[in-house]
Design a protein around this nucleic acid. Structure first.
Lengths: 347, 347
DNA sequence: GTGAAAGCGCTAACAT
DNA sequence: ATGTTAGCGCTTTCAC
């Protein structure tokens, strides 16, 4: 109570206060509170007691200045209000706080003013010990800037040039989804792309998924219909619109649709039903992701786990910081077919 | 290029490097880079040039230590992977980065180990200049701890004892949803609660929404049926389960259902359709929130805007930090009925 | 096992 | 308008 009046600062108990109250030097307090050796158990306990009594918490600014470490890692993402991103964010957060690290969020999209993604500037720089990049579409310049930061870097959910990344093999995942449709006997299969005009998202992912689709079709010797190819931007609304566009085109319709994301697949299903089509009787639909709504929607999908991917990426960063050089490396995350009720054999 | 070799530090250009290169003192550099007065335009420009050439960025630890300010504000939330939360987070982030502030995320739920929500400890403390609390259920002890931090505090999306908060009037919002159903002629109305066993979420919100429902019913002189009251936890899955539970109960069924959140409302609709019910012909359903899926689902709802609420809360915090005492205060955010196709007149 | 003291890089009086 | 200097609170040799 009275202790804090001792020093001038109106705010915050310093290490000196603790040292004084415990009758030791600040060096010893420092060792004690950080659990370092070279402190007798007896003094350590006394110091810890005094510290907690005084409500002492080390100033991160001060220790950051002294050590050069902030115990904060940054997350760079184009959005946070989209499935993969908020899931991954949750994963990073959990892993980090289990290790006593802080998470600093940088969400930069082209919406945010003059596209002044000055992240390596005032923002990211000197603030964080490592950086995790979530499916950002980065220009070469931006990547250069990031690398110049000279801190551990890892990408999650989409490759970044010259930087280890963890994520599923998008080509294979899309191929698996496509194969599922083929296995059910479908031959007239359309595809809903994931990319539209989104300049923030990692551009490779959508492309890779469509490649997987094409490859699998080719492998099966099934004809590819460009007129059944349509574009969306990963959102539910875009899925609904894409369906509309596809169905408004003249000519025959596909019996199955492979969508580059669950959100779009759900948009397709909803819009199809509104148009009086039955899923899966009239149209089979499969997605990629396994959104939390998918089980209830009965959406068949190729599931991936962003939380696990993000945790893994975070752990690599932390290991690297702990001195285990080479901890950060490329990893292909698991994915798995989940067959539900939005897909059925061709009747 | 060669400049960084000048000093011992292998990492990072310091203010001294810039000062030396520009032929001025560190004090002048400090003023110049922060846009403070008392620097001639000429020297300022020279310093800025040198600084950018050297890639100088001030160490936040050092300036934090010197000023006592971190230019970081914290966000405390039970989840980040749920609608209100990721939307609000997006809002905070945008507002913050426009002002050159950083966002530090603390997501604490009872899942995270031994419920050691030690936020006021190592985590939050000394790390942030202000804190925004997102619909957290806080114990009295925890609230005490937070207040002891002695930094500006604001709650968004649910009242926190002894702390200004911004959010919609949940009672009125629920009443509005209920009134919509009444106006359509419905008299047999069920309600889907928002709370189940969630100890992390702010407990008041679910309760308030149900209160609004009850009050509106009473006001209209319509009988309340406890057997049409069922509980969920704000998720889609819980909505589906709740519908199932409700419909499995013996006795007559309601013709309309007021749900405490859109996610649950969507779960209800999906499950109802699976059971062969038509929405809205056989059952009208209304939610609260206006989830991004709701327009496509045709879900009628009482819309609120978490992004705007979060931005406002953030701005208040920033204003308070800027010295405008009293900037943080209670605000009731807007909400609005959006009538779509999940509700229809009683036939 | 413990203490003294020199920084870490910046800011804020206070000179000039 | 610019420079000097004394910290901010912690960590970390290096003595003892």
């Amino acid at each position: 109570m009275a202790a804090r009046a001792a020093r001038g600062g109106h705010h915050g108990v310093s290490i000196e206060d603790v040292a004084a109250a415990a009758g030791v030097s600040t060096a010893t307090v420092s060792r004690a509170v950080r659990g370092l050796p070279r402190v007798s158990e007896q003094t350590r306990r006394r110091i810890l007691d005094v510290a907690s009594e005084l409500g002492y918490v080390a100033s991160s600014a001060a220790s950051g200045l002294a050590t050069g470490r902030t115990r904060t890692i940054g997350v760079l993402a184009p959005y946070v209000d989209r499935w993969f991103f908020y899931k991954a964010l949750e994963g990073v957060e959990r892993e980090l706080h289990e290790q006593g690290y802080n998470l600093s969020l940088f969400s930069l999209d082209s919406r945010s003013g003059e596209r002044q993604r000055t992240f390596s500037k005032t923002m990211v720089a000197k603030h964080i010990d490592a950086l995790l990049v979530l499916c950002m579409a980065l220009s070469m310049d931006e990547i250069q800037e990031l690398r110049r930061l000279d801190i551990p870097l890892v990408a999650v959910g989409g490759p970044v040039e010259g930087c280890s990344s963890i994520g599923i093999n998008d080509v294979e995942a899309a191929a698996l989804a496509t194969r599922h449709l083929l296995d059910l006997g479908h031959r007239d299969i359309g595809v809903l792309h994931g990319q539209d005009d989104d300049e923030d998202l990692n551009f490779q992912v959508p492309e890779l998924r469509v490649n997987g689709f094409h490859e699998e079709l080719a492998r099966a010797g099934v004809e590819y219909h460009p007129e059944w190819e349509v574009r969306g931007n990963f959102t539910l609304a875009s899925g609904a619109e894409a369906f509309e566009e596809l169905w408004n085109r003249p000519g025959p319709k596909p019996t199955a649709l492979m969508c580059a994301s669950d959100e779009m697949a759900m948009g397709v299903i909803l819009q199809a039903q509104r148009r009086g089509l039955r899923v899966p009787e009239d149209l089979s639909v499969i997605g990629i992701d396994d959104h939390e709504f998918s089980p209830v929607m009965g959406l068949s999908t190729v599931a991936q786990d962003p939380v696990a991917q993000a945790r893994l990426g975070t752990r690599m960063l932390l290991d690297e910081l702990a001195g285990k050089a080479g901890s950060v490396h490329d990893v292909h995350a698991d994915f798995e077919l989940k067959s539900r009720t939005s897909t059925a054999p061709l009747s």
